[in-house]
Design a protein around this nucleic acid. Structure first.
Lengths: 233, 233
DNA sequence: TGACTTATTGTAAAAATTACTATATTTAGT
DNA sequence: ACTAAATATAGTAATTTTTACAATAAGTCA
């Protein structure tokens, strides 16, 4: 490539990838789904599941395909996070990557490493090792985005089991925002969500079992439309 | 490219661009800075200023360079918006684009179309014509992002003149959120921002001129740190 | 049964929001 | 210089929301 005249074809020498930051919640901790790379570069490093996008593939399709190939997950609705494009971020050439993220219920899915992923595993956010490429940055900035969204969208329910106790819900927020909330006041705060109480209780606890609730998405969307309700944690 | 074996080099056939969505505020309306394209494709169409990124150029650098080349603007701090990557979005090949956005004071800058931009002009969001590529989508989703940010970050001051009246501030919010607010209550709401009152007043108005204020960013950041203050409109 | 633990409800004080009123200040016109 | 008009600015009281804390209920386990 000449310094003085850059041809149009000189631009078409880049690749791009998607990286799928999948969050789950287990044992009172938020975890990310990581894979261990089975090929160079960064062979044997832990990484966010991601790969190059086919030249004719749409980005959301690529995200679904790649997540499935590497971890076995399918039918996961992903949303866009940020894009990372430093020229030095990939040793093999110019590769910019678009991060996607999703929240899933860990127990609803079976993880199975395949393709070039040696392992696939949930890792607590407190125990993230050194990651390949700039994946540490991608993970942490996507987690910040998640925390931001938690404050104005009721997406926490995508992490919790379908039936949950109010305490479990509260603990999730306490973990994410690193605070302690008053139990009674927390319940008042989530009143407008109209969580559906079930005729079921917690099992195998050595104290009074709490009632189980579930979140009704359509009910929520209706109150957003009808009452102009705006969720705010 | 074979269907059965895709070589690594087959991936390095894409290009990417940045598009710079620049918002300003004038005559009580939010406007976007648009250019008229002087070359194919979409010649003579209006578009968000943007272009291809050099193979070794970092994304923020590219955004600054391209914005300057097309509109003459420099020293504009831009933030990332979303990335758009549909395979059909660019007629000349696979080009994904990373949208950036910035808020600026219209009067602080001089717009000058150059390079392949035939014109560069502020256009009210109410009067946006059909745009090149998928730029209509990029503009509207970036505006949604802006409105979201306006609710939890005091960035409105980047749009207003350095010295502004409280009414001007209120009108900006009323425009963005499409609501009407009570004047007295609005002032209470912004009390925690500790806007600095100046010994100056509005000029050339045919009624009692309002006092001018300015926003002290460092003061704000201090109260975020010290008092754990969280701005919320 | 009773001790224990946690769930759930309640209450009252404090703080923030809302709707509205009153007053002050400046311009423009007589 | 005075007055009317317009708007800035401050204040007030009712309402709602938030907060801190207390009381009660309902299970488990020995």
């Amino acid at each position: 490539m000449s310094l003085y005249k850059i041809e149009i074809n000189d631009f078409f020498t880049s690749a791009f990838s998607v990286d799928c930051v999948i969050f789950g919640y287990e044992d009172g901790e938020i975890k990310a789904l990581l894979i261990q790379r089975g090929m160079e570069p960064f062979k044997h490093f832990w990484a966010i599941p991601g790969d190059l996008v086919y030249p004719n593939e749409d980005l959301p399709d690529a995200a679904s395909r790649i997540l499935h190939e590497l971890t076995g997950l399918s039918d996961v609705e992903m949303h866009q996070s940020h894009t990372f494009g430093s020229p030095e971020r990939h040793p093999q050439g110019r590769v910019i990557t678009i991060a996607y993220f999703a929240l899933i219920r860990i127990t609803d899915f079976e993880i199975k490493a395949s393709s070039w992923a040696e392992k696939a595993q949930w890792v607590s956010l407190n125990e993230i090792p050194a990651l390949a490429f700039d994946h540490s940055t991608i993970l942490s900035s996507t987690y910040e985005l998640l925390k931001q969204k938690l404050t104005y969208e009721p997406i926490c329910f995508e992490l919790l089991p379908e039936r949950f106790t109010l305490n479990e819900l509260q603990q999730l927020y306490e973990y994410a925002f690193n605070t302690i909330m008053d139990k009674a006041n927390f319940r008042k705060k989530i009143k407008p969500l109209h969580l559906t109480p079930l005729n079921e209780r917690q099992k195998n606890v050595k104290h009074r079992p709490a009632k189980l609730f579930k979140f009704d998405q359509s009910e929520y969307l209706k109150s957003v439309q009808d009452d102009n309700y705006q969720f705010k944690m």
